[in-house]
Every structure is written in C-alpha cells, then in structure tokens.
Amino acid sequence: MDIIQILSSSRVFLAPPSLPIVLRLGMDGEELTEQETALYDRQIRVWGAGAQRRLSKAHILVCGITGTIAEFCKNIVLAGVGSLTLVDDRAVTKEALSANFLIPSDENACAGKTLTELCRDSLKDFNPMVRVSVEKGDLSSFGAEFYSKFDVVVVSCCSFTTKKLINEKCRKLSKRVAFYTVDCRDSCGEIFVDLQHHKYSKQKQEETIECELHYPSFEESISVPWKALPRKFSKLYFAMRVIERFEEAEQRKPGELSIADLPAVVKLKKELCEAQSLNESHIPNVLLERLVTDTREFPPVCPIIGGILGQEVIKAISGKGDPLKNFFFFDAMDGKGIIEDVSGKT
C-alpha cells in the first residue's frame, strides 16, 4: 500500500518537520535517485517525494518569452520538471533584455542565436536533469498533435484570438492539458488558469481530502456578463479586457500601444461599460493610462507573477493543494495579489 502524505499546499512555509511526512514511492516502484534526493532535499520537505516524481515526468510548453516567463521557467526548471519547450520566434531586442536575466550580455555568446535559444542555454545550466528545448514556428499554426505532447501550456504576449484558439485546442485533446495565460503591463500582472476538470487532494487537519474543481475556458470566462460579477471586483480584470478588445479591433500586437491611444481606449471603455451596464468608475482612466503608456514589464513584478505561476503549475502537476481559480491579479501600486473566480456561476 503506497501512502502519499499530503501537505496542504506547495506554499507551505510553516509545515512542521515533526509532522510525519511519509515518503513512499509510487506503485511503479520508481525511486528518486540519490542525486535527486540530495538536490531536491528542501523542496521534497515541502511537497513530498511523490509530487517530486510527478514533476519529473511533466512536460511544459511556454509560448512568448518575457521577463515574467523567464522567472517562471527558472522556477520550474529548478523544481525539476521533466521537460520544458520554448516557443518564440522574436529576435533579441533591447526590450526583451530589460527584464530577462536569462540572456547574457556578452554579444559573442549571443551571436547567431535566437531569444529562445539563449534562454534555453541558460535554463539548461540551472538544472542538468531537465530537458530544455526550442520549437520554431507560429503558435496558432500548431495542430492538436503538437499540444498533446504537453501536460502544461503557458502562453504570454499573444493576441486575444490566439489565446482562445490554443485554449480550445488544448480542451479538445483526449488528455487533460493545463492551460495558463500570463500578461504583465506596467506594474500590473494577470494570470488566467484553465485546469478543465481538476482532481486533487489536500490536507485538512489529520485527513487527506479529495477535491474536484471544474474550470471554464478562457472564452467562457470572459463571456460572463460584467453585471453578473460581484460588486467589488478587481478593476484590473475589466481594464485588461478593454485593452484586449482594443488591440483586437485595431489589429495591434500585444503591447503595441502608446499614450496616443488613450483617448480611443477610453472611448472603447465607455462603449463596453454601456453595453455591459457597468458603472464606468469601475475602470479608472488612470489605470488604463498606466496600461497603455508603459507596456514594458516592471522588473520587480516579474518574480512575483512568475513565482505565483510557478507555484500554481507545481500544484496542478502534483495534484496537491487548492489551485487558484481562475484569475490572479497583482498591482504593485496597491501591493495586493488577488484571486478572482470568473466562472459564470452565481
């Protein structure tokens, strides 16, 4: 009988060492190697050997390399996932460099390499036990076959349409693929999570409880009428939707905005608020102004969003602890990191 003692979540800081963490290994009898036990000692104490083994078999895809994604990649490579695949055909730009510590500044080392290749080389170095590779091509052109190779798909800096498209492709697969989007603008960040039907366990007092959560798709979530959302809802949620619609309508790439767009963005906000019967004050113009003027990431926000995303992906893979459902928002201005559930249920 295999017992996997479950700690309440991967975010355990105070878990007592005296708590009997029973570390038995899976039915297939696979054990962590001595090398793995030594390297992962501290984190096995957080999430257990069973979770560590599941991590080592998980395959992760990330699309769109940003500072936040670089943080996320570092976290899961250190955690010891099976493999990580990077997709982003962009060249190394000054902007890409600004919040990304994976790109060496040495020009000789960078010569002839793409953004993803440079990141891959740095990430490989962090943990030789993780396979890190690069895939070339256009995100929206990949078929279901491609996505079925992964357990987790994370997309960043891509259009509204692409997000929906990839999310739908993942949902149509016979295997369950966890889907995340992450976006940072100015000092704000947003994470969206779709785990479809997620079964997990958590520790409550002495007992291990089995739980299940049902997630809506990205499209289902954002279709929830604004009026149906709780009265005190994150302003950032609405603001991000306005920007998303604006970029879509104007055929802009994510982040291709400037202060000159503000009047048009404010106009769109008015229209959307009217259509959705939402008081305009829920989307302050100052917030929209911040999101259109400085579309670059604010470096200290990257490890915060990348850290939360890393924890969530580890929870999803290990099946331990309450995962967040289904939006997370952080704004350095007020310092709050908030979870909002946009499921269309009252």
């Binding site: 991967s10 975010r11 955690a79 850290g307 939360i308 890393g310 924890q311």
Partner: peptide
C-alpha cells in the same frame, strides 16, 4: 523548507 518560487 524552502522553494524557489516563494523566494522569488
């Protein structure tokens, strides 16, 4: 107990 994500 320590993990990278929290430190970040």
């Amino acid at each position: 107990h320590a993990v990278a994500t929290t430190n970040a």
